[in-house]
Design a protein around this nucleic acid. Structure first.
Lengths: 163, 163
DNA sequence: AGTGAAAGGGATCTGGG
DNA sequence: CCCAGATCCCTTTCACT
């Protein structure tokens, strides 16, 4: 169905992850293709779901949310955050992952202050046991997705990833 | 120095986080301003560091990295990942945070397969004790930064966040 | 699948209010 | 901050390779 990404696709993805506002004509120059060819490839990357969108990157610290924390949860029966809409209603919760292992979920939260974090943790605590880790600093985050190392077997989502 | 963000700034940020390729003219329509006014505001948001860039969002699962995990590390003395360039050389490591508490850092990693994860964990293990959590599914991730709730005290990065 | 040219449409920027 | 005009560039289409 979706063919594997070739080298040109990856160059396009690399450039668009670096600058999502690149015009087709400039992008065409960067990857040594004509504008229509690039436009066609980008359209396919979007339609196949490889590119899910284009977002302005906002620095949370400069937008009033300088404090980040990870929260692991072991939810009480019937109160799992993933089953309810509780997390959806909490904009401070920026990520929710379901985990294997003894913790059932991992949250990343961003808040304005320690007092806000305390309040948020109290609300989250109603759903089960918690374990929180405050982030002191972030070395990097949101690194671009890169092409597989040469010689590495490529596995797409539709194939599944089991060996 | 940097003035607090007003309601119009937040509407601009909301729209640009939703669609980073919006033109100034369309954006102007969405926030009921003229194009030049919007262009000037966006320029200020970029220069003040609130907007750090524009990125195409790539689905890792459709780009050959369907497996996500969190790795907590308690690094051996002198081998802390944050002090070396070790993590920089590992493209699989997409986030590195320094933590308070008994674990000194939190990594988010994306890999092509369980075998790759095993190899990566072996390399990371040379730097200290590890605790890894495999992600079964992700409810959401990369949620937009939203304006503070009305009445909430706004704290910018330059003020610091201590109450 | 890609190229090249041409047309048509917008978007951005400037200057004035 | 708005408006209007002018310029420039970008996208899209089409015929052809």
């Amino acid at each position: 169905m979706d063919r594997p990404l070739d080298q040109t696709d990856w160059r396009i993805l690399t450039e668009l992850q670096r600058d999502g506002r690149l015009s087709f004509s400039r992008l065409a120059g960067l990857v040594n293709l004509s504008s229509p060819a690039v436009a066609e490839r980008v359209r396919r990357l979007e339609e196949s779901g490889v590119i899910t969108g284009y977002r302005a990157q906002v620095d949370p610290a400069r937008a009033g949310q300088p404090l980040t924390a990870f929260v692991q949860m072991r939810c009480a029966l019937g109160r799992c955050l993933l089953k309810t809409t509780a997390a959806e209603d909490l904009p401070e919760v920026t990520e929710v992952h379901k985990l294997s292992g003894s913790w059932c979920s991992m949250l990343k939260v961003r808040v304005a202050s320690m007092a806000h974090l305390e309040g948020l943790l109290e609300r989250l605590g109603e759903h089960g046991e918690m374990n929180s880790h405050i982030v002191l600093s972030t070395a990097y985050e949101g690194r671009a997705v890169v092409p597989p190392a040469p010689g590495e077997r490529t596995v797409t989502a539709s194939e599944g990833w089991t060996r």
